[in-house]
Design a protein around this nucleic acid. Structure first.
Length: 342
DNA sequence: CGAATTTGACCCCG
DNA sequence: CGGGGTCAAATTCG
C-alpha cells in the first residue's frame, strides 16, 4: 500500500502544488494595487484551497499519528528543546535535559518542536539566487541518503545555535520526481536573530545544493502543515509567502513571514530573552499565546487536532484574512529588505 | 586561521 | 535490526 499510494500521493501533491503556484502567479500578474478586495480575496481563496488540499493529501498518507505533540510542549522554550541526542553541549545540556525529562517528561524533544514544510521550486529562468533565502543563517551538519529517495537529505541547523541557543533546524530534500523541487522541513522556531544584526547570509545552504545542478533559480514556495499550535503560524505565513513572492523583490520571505506573523500575534513574550538576544521582542510563543490564536486549547494535538487545523484553514477568517489584511495595509513594507537588518 | 562543509560513525526509536 | 537524525573529526573554503 505504500509505494503505489505514495506515488499517487506525490503526483497529487505535485499537481496541487503546481496549481497553487499558478494561482500565485496569477495573483502576481494582477498587481495588488489594481485588484479589488474581492478579487484578491478570491485569489487567496484559490490558493487556500490548494493548500488545504495539500494538507489533506499530506495528512492522509502518513497520518497515523504524525505528531504525538507533547501536551503544551513549549515549542521553543530553550529548556525544553534540546534537539540533540547526547553529546551536544554535553555538560550543560545533559544536566538540563535530564532534569527536565524527569520533571516534565519531555522525552520527545525533537518531536515537540513545531514543524512545517516548504516546497520550493527552483526554476532556471530568472537569475534569482537561491531557492529561497529565508533570512537565517544555516549551517549544514549532516547529510543522509534516505531510503527510497533519489537524493540525499541535508540537515541544517541555525548557525547561532550556540550563541543564541537557537535550536531551529531544517532539512532539505530534493524531490526525486522533480529535481527542481525541494522540500524543506523546518523544525523549531528561531530564537536567535529575528532579523537582528545578523546580516542574512548571502548564500543559503540550499543555494549551494542548487548551484550544483542548476545554478540560476527562481523560486516559489508554499508552506504546508505542521503540528501543534504553531501550525497556525505557519499556515498564516503562507499567506505572507504569497504576498512576498508577489513582489519577488525580497529574498527572505520566510523570515519575514514569521517575524511579522509573530508580531501580529502580539507575542510580546517576555520569556527568556537573553541579554544577547534582547533586541528582538518575540521569540518563543508561549503555549497560551498560541492557544489564544488557535482558539481551542492546545493540549492534545493529534488527528483530531489536525482536523481542526484543517477545518480552520477552511475559514479564511482565521489564517487568511488575518494576515492578509495586515499586508494590505502596508504592502510596501521596507523592513524586509536585506539592508534593513544591517 | 577561523568558519563552514563533508562524511563516517554513533545513537535513538519504531 | 534498520532507518533517520546528529555528532564530530577531517577537510575545504574564504
Amino acid at each position: 500500500m505504500d509505494t503505489g499510494l505514495k506515488c499517487q500521493q506525490k503526483t497529487l501533491v505535485n499537481e496541487l502544488t503546481q496549481g497553487m503556484e499558478l494561482a500565485k502567479q496569477l495573483k502576481i500578474h494582477l498587481s495588488p494595487s489594481s485588484m479589488s478586495q474581492t478579487q484578491e480575496f478570491l485569489v487567496h481563496k484559490i490558493v487556500a484551497s490548494f493548500e488545504k488540499a495539500l494538507l489533506i493529501v499530506k495528512w492522509s498518507g502518513p497520518v497515523e499519528n504524525p505528531q504525538p505533540v507533547a501536551p503544551s510542549s513549549a515549542p521553543q522554550s530553550p529548556l525544553s528543546v534540546n534537539g540533540s541526542p547526547r553529546t551536544v553541549s554535553e555538560d550543560f545540556d545533559k544536566g538540563c535535559k535530564d532534569h527536565h525529562q524527569e520533571h516534565t517528561d519531555f522525552s520527545k524533544k525533537r518531536k515537540t518542536l513545531p514543524t512545517w514544510t516548504d516546497q520550493v521550486r527552483v526554476c532556471s529562468e530568472t537569475g534569482l539566487e537561491g531557492p529561497h533565502d529565508d533570512g537565517y543563517n544555516w549551517r549544514k551538519y549532516g547529510q543522509k541518503d534516505i531510503l527510497g529517495a533519489k537524493y540525499p537529505r541535508s540537515y541544517y541547523r541555525c548557525t547561532y545555535r550556540n550563541l543564541h541557543d537557537c535550536w531551529a533546524t531544517k532539512q532539505v530534500q530534493r524531490s526525486d520526481e522533480d529535481p527542481s523541487m525541494f522540500e524543506i522541513t523546518y523544525r523549531g522556531k528561531h530564537t536567535c536573530t529575528q532579523g537582528s544584526h545578523s546580516v542574512p547570509a548571502p548564500a543559503s545552504p540550499e543555494k549551494q545544493e542548487i548551484k550544483q545542478n542548476n545554478h540560476n533559480d527562481n523560486n516559489h514556495q508554499q508552506q504546508h502543515y505542521i503540528e501543534n499550535p504553531l501550525n497556525y503560524s505557519s499556515m498564516a505565513s503562507t499567506s505572507y509567502g504569497c504576498m512576498k513572492s508577489e513582489t519577488s523583490l525580497f529574498p527572505q520571505p520566510s523570515a519575514f513571514n514569521k517575524d511579522n506573523y509573530d508580531n501580529l500575534l502580539g507575542c510580546y513574550s517576555p520569556t527568556f530573552i537573553s541579554p544577547a538576544t534582547s533586541d528582538s521582542n518575540c521569540f518563543s510563543l508561549s503555549p497560551c499565546q498560541m492557544s489564544n490564536f488557535g482558539g481551542p486549547p492546545n493540549l492534545q494535538h493529534s488527528e483530531s487536532e489536525l482536523t481542526e487545523i484543517i477545518s480552520a484553514a477552511n475559514s479564511p477568517i482565521l489564517n487568511l484574512e488575518f494576515p492578509l489584511d495586515q499586508v494590505d495595509f502596508d504592502p510596501s513594507f521596507p523592513f524586509d529588505t536585506p539592508g534593513f537588518f544591517s
